[in-house]
């Protein structure tokens, strides 16, 4: 660049933005709007409504009046002893203050009681470990006992490769718990958030009685790269986004983050079990 009045090239721009600390600048991955700080408390893009990824604890703050965590100490079974994997788990625990990729418990949302599961993409991409599956299964079992609906926020890259087939088996294990829960006449409400992929999409994330999604959330089964390699071309721009899933009849509604608490409490109210 020769003069300071000249337009910088894209590579110069990206070099400059790289120098700005991450916590001071946010770029919307959908419309590329740059924000020097989140302009709304709920971390959404003011331009397109995309909801930035929240931690499970932030989600609890945003959505519940009260929350009581269960199974806090459930963690990876001791048979997984690969030291690299254990280090990864340890870092994830420290970063998220969670012991697994899902936070479970019982909550009140605008005074509506429910079981609540929130996956956290900051914990090894919200991947489905054995303990993740165990916590979800226990939540559905406990909510069935209490006869309250369950709300689940999905956020996951899919199976957890480091746990191999044990991860895959969780898909069937949690599905079985969902089936038992639903057979008891209880409602299961899913909110698909960015990103929900792979084995989580192919199991409990798409088994809800009502399936909601946040605007522009990436939702799919196969990864984009795998699909590109298969079809030898780039998938369409809006591929695997919430709006495309809605257009194809795969989800019930897209809800803005600002409306989520109200929408969930309304749905919960309609689905509370009135004991005779």
């Amino acid at each position: 660049m020769t003069s300071k009045f000249e337009t910088p090239t894209p590579s110069e721009l990206s070099q400059r933005t790289d120098k700005i600390p991450d916590n001071l600048m946010h770029r919307c991955p959908i419309c590329h709007q740059v924000m020097t700080h989140y302009q709304s408390a709920d971390k959404t893009c003011p331009n397109c409504g995309y909801g930035f990824r929240l931690t499970a604890r932030e989600r609890v703050e945003a959505i519940t009046d009260t929350f009581e965590e269960i199974d806090r100490d459930v963690t990876i079974p001791s048979r997984f002893d690969d030291s690299l994997y254990l280090q990864k788990i340890e870092r994830a625990k420290q970063a998220t203050k969670l012991n697994e990729s899902v936070l479970t418990g019982f909550a009140s949302i605008n005074r509506q009681q429910c079981g609540l599961a929130i996956m956290d993409s900051h914990f090894i991409m919200g991947s489905l470990g054995s303990a993740t599956g165990e916590k979800l299964t226990r939540l559905f079992e406990a909510a069935k006992q209490k006869r309250v609906p369950v709300v689940l926020f999905a956020a996951s890259g899919g199976a957890r490769m480091q746990e191999g087939m044990n991860s895959l088996m969780q898909m069937a294990k949690v599905s079985q718990a969902v089936a038992d829960f639903q057979a008891a006449g209880l409602a299961y409400i899913v909110v698909l958030t960015d990103p929900t992929m792979g084995g989580v999409t192919a199991s409990f994330a798409t088994q809800g009685d009502v399936i909601l999604a946040e605007p522009h959330a990436m939702i799919g089964f196969a990864g984009r790269r795998v699909i590109e390699q298969t079809i030898k071309q780039a998938p369409p721009q809006d591929f695997q986004r919430a709006e495309t899933l809605l257009a194809h009849g795969l989800i019930d509604a897209i809800v803005q983050r600002v409306d989520l608490k109200q929408t969930l409490s309304q749905l919960l109210q309609w689905h509370q079990v009135k004991e005779a």
């Binding site: 898909m171 069937a172 599905s175 079985q176 969902v178 089936a179 057979a183 999409t201 192919a202 199991s203 409990f204 994330a205 798409t206 088994q207 799919g220 089964f221 196969a222 990864g223 795998v226 699909i227 298969t230 079809i231 998938p235 369409p236 591929f239 695997q240 495309t244 194809h248 795969l250």
Partner: peptide, 25 residues
């Protein structure tokens, strides 16, 4: 499962999820 645009648009994930929900029961 086949990874392509058609499969995703027709609910590849959901179709597998239903097989698990129904199969286990």
């Amino acid at each position: 499962a086949f990874p392509d645009v058609h499969a995703e648009h027709h609910g590849q994930g959901e179709s597998i999820a239903q097989c698990l929900l129904v199969g286990t029961q």
